[in-house]
């Protein structure tokens, strides 16, 4: 087990995990990270209006681990404000922003380390990776691209992971090899690695977003400052999306600001600048 220690091989990495109740799910994310991830500086658990019972369960589960710090942010849900608050508490050079419904699997050991190494490059901003649904073979996220006549979408979402990484993959379905590193417009906020100075340098997440869109916006803003978003290929985390939070209607506000932001990353003549082979296919998903 690679629990955070004082040994010299640990990464100067602060993991920030927001949660609302779901103590069990959250601890699964924490434990998987500790079991299969790198040695790290700290884990910051950010409670957003959790019930006393669930919060207590988290405290009990982490009581013997001083590097796991619990903070409460008991304001109405705004993902951006929540994460900015969490990042303020972080002391590490690097940040791993992580949803509490994720899980690192043993076959992906070393993935976080590679993401951090990538993020250390001065020309790199946010770093993401493949996410699979809970079944372990359906892609939830292979990076983010900007879809003409659409919004920001997850590359290969809903497709079979095993087919996407096969040596003889069908390139008409999987034009990009997600076992390799790829420059992208953005990666999902569910799992993002970034140097804290870079995050803070662009003002953190834009709090005008409420629920979603702020993660992609952050990538686009960093891209514009010359710090490119990268997708690190090979390995994956599970993302049991929708288990972490009840359905909340996305307010118009987020669509408005997303459009404003995405237009900054979008090329009207090409579509998505980094993955044109996808965006030129109108019906491709």
């Amino acid at each position: 087990m690679s629990e955070a220690t004082s040994s010299s091989d640990k990464l100067d990495l602060s993991v920030v995990i927001p949660f609302h109740n779901k103590a069990k799910l959250t601890m699964l994310a924490v434990d998987s990270l500790l079991k299969f991830g790198p040695r790290l500086r700290e884990i910051i658990l950010l409670s957003n209006n959790s019930s006393p019972d669930e919060l207590e369960a988290i405290k009990l589960a982490t009581v013997s681990r001083p590097f796991i710090k619990i903070f409460e942010y008991n304001h109405p849900f705004n993902y951006q404000k929540l994460m900015n608050f969490g990042v303020e508490q972080a002391t590490g050079q690097f940040l791993l922003l992580l949803n509490n419904d994720t899980e690192l699997r043993p076959e992906s050991a070393g993935l976080i380390e590679r993401m951090v190494a990538k993020a250390a490059d001065p020309k790199v901003g946010i770093v993401g990776c493949t996410l699979l649904y809970g079944d372990g073979n359906t892609i939830q996220h292979g990076g983010v691209f900007l879809r003409p006549k659409g919004q920001a979408e997850h590359l290969y979402a809903g497709r079979r992971y095993s087919q996407s990484i096969a040596a003889d993959r069908d390139v008409s379905i999987f034009p990009y090899d997600i076992t390799t590193d790829l420059a992208m417009t953005a990666v999902t906020g569910a799992v993002q690695v970034v140097e804290k100075a870079k995050y803070v340098g662009v003002g953190g997440m834009d709090t005008r977003f409420i629920i979603c869109g702020g993660d992609v916006d952050l990538c686009i803003r960093l891209n514009h400052t010359g710090m490119q978003t990268w997708f690190v290929g090979g390995g994956f985390l599970l993302h049991k999306e929708s288990q972490s939070r009840a359905f909340i209607p996305i307010p118009y506000n987020d669509f408005y600001w997303s459009y404003r932001s995405y237009m900054q990353g979008f090329d009207i003549e090409v579509g998505d600048r980094y993955l044109p082979a996808i965006t030129n296919q109108e019906d491709f998903r």
Binding site: L146, P148, K149, Y252, F255, Y259, I268, E269, T279, N280
Partner: peptide, 25 residues
């Protein structure tokens, strides 16, 4: 939810979400 109550009562004002334009349009 607030949205269900308002927009079910006054469907005319259900927002229109802007999305990206088609390539080359």
């Amino acid at each position: 939810t607030f949205e269900e109550k308002i927009y079910s009562s006054i469907p005319l004002i259900v927002p229109l979400n802007p999305s990206l334009p088609a390539i080359g349009r």
